[in-house]
Amino acid sequence: MTDALTLVSLLLVAASATAAVAVRDPARQALVLAVLGLALAVLFTVVQAPDVGLSQLAVGSALTPLLILLSVRKVRRRGQHEGGDR
């Protein structure tokens, strides 16, 4: 049963990591990245590395999305300004 659990979490990490690369829009990518972080946290816990899993959860669940979305907002606002000037 341990092998099955490891296999399932590895597959989930592979699937969500592929999706994180394949999705092109940064806002949507941030969402996939959050889910990838959750999958990674499960994988780390399954291979008995809860410290690493906790780091992943702490950084990935709120901090990384906030940084990405703030950057997206800044870039979009700059785009709007430049669009208005021309």
């Binding site: 989930l12 699937a15 969500s16 999706a19 394949a22 999705v23 969402l31 996939v32 959050a34 889910v35 959750l38 999958a39 499960v42």
Partner: peptide
């Protein structure tokens, strides 16, 4: 979680 990965991607 499988459907979640599908749903978010």
């Amino acid at each position: 979680f499988g459907p979640v990965v599908w749903g978010v991607a």
